[in-house]
Design a protein around this nucleic acid. Sequence first.
DNA 1: CAATTAAACTGGACGATGTCCAGTTCAAGG
DNA 2: CCTTGAACTGGACATCGTCCAGTTTAATTG
Lengths: 183, 183
Amino acid sequence: MARGPGTRAGLTRTAVLDAARALLAEDGLPGLTMRALARRLDVAPNALYSHVAGKTELVDALLDDHLAAVHDPTPDAADPVAAVADLMTSTFDVLVTAPDLVPLYLQRRGARGENAIRLGATMDALLARAGVPAEAIPTARNNLIVHAVGAAAFATAEGADPTAARHAFVAGLGWLLAGIVRS
Amino acid sequence: MARGPGTRAGLTRTAVLDAARALLAEDGLPGLTMRALARRLDVAPNALYSHVAGKTELVDALLDDHLAAVHDPTPDAADPVAAVADLMTSTFDVLVTAPDLVPLYLQRRGARGENAIRLGATMDALLARAGVPAEAIPTARNNLIVHAVGAAAFATAEGADPTAARHAFVAGLGWLLAGIVRS
DNA sequence: CAATTAAACTGGACGATGTCCAGTTCAAGG
DNA sequence: CCTTGAACTGGACATCGTCCAGTTTAATTG
């Protein structure tokens, strides 16, 4: 049962990330610790550093991987405004799925990973097709992202009513989109 | 120079909070540690626990105290919608002042402290005077708070352009208010 | 004014965290 | 087959928040 030094355990980067995801789902953010992760993989804590640069890099990867679940609408949809609404709603729903991660999006700025970049790009394209002038697109995108992430943060805060928070998110999204297309 | 056990150091809860605020301003959130705080006050780390329940309570107090700087508009202003806009803009500006605290507002839900309650109450009164139906006020308030705090979080993230972020905040605030009064 | 009580502190420790420095062993490539 | 480099373990380091005794001082009581 005891593995000596040098013996392989067959770890993979994706295995580490999967275990981290599971650990996060089971025990929350405070439960996600390098040692607990190693324990779950039956490995010494240091072994993780062969597959991950450190905890922050681990978390960053988790954050962006999570965004992969966002439903990417067809960029040539008939109604681009409705498509943007769908995109943001899907983002909100996905974020709410992992409450512990939401504050981290604010802390680490949610724009680094490739999934975040992809979502931003399709959003820009949809906004352009909706008639938003090019120089106004950054402002519009900023507001929409702030709204989705901020609403998710409030929706997942303890003591919040999830359904009421979602209703508020949808209402605010409509108001923002109305203002954006009118500008 | 060395103080034996039992000798008083003359600490106060407000002295501890002030030192914590200064420490936060100088060294940021990672620099705000119980031990560093004690060092700054020339006191053993445990001494702090005579004036503060723990670090989370310390941070919560810091958060709410920070909101005291928000300019509270006269609740009987001529234009209630403009007053709400001023309130939210002042909140945004105050939040941006302490970048490290902003993510914590999302984490700990920004509604517990007395200052937060006070701001929420005046906001509700202004919205009512603006003609917003009572059952729609919670949704409106939720969206406005989300917008202010979320925009502040994005504005203070590293790599963000502060002036552009503020412009985006003002634009989004206008859109939200337009939608709120029209509902 | 004297005696008791409660609070403010110090000393020292505990458990836990992220991470690094050696070693050891296995798997693959020349 | 041999060599090289990566995957591991063992053990340690610094640091964190917090608690348990003690000790002394200030406030309160009779």
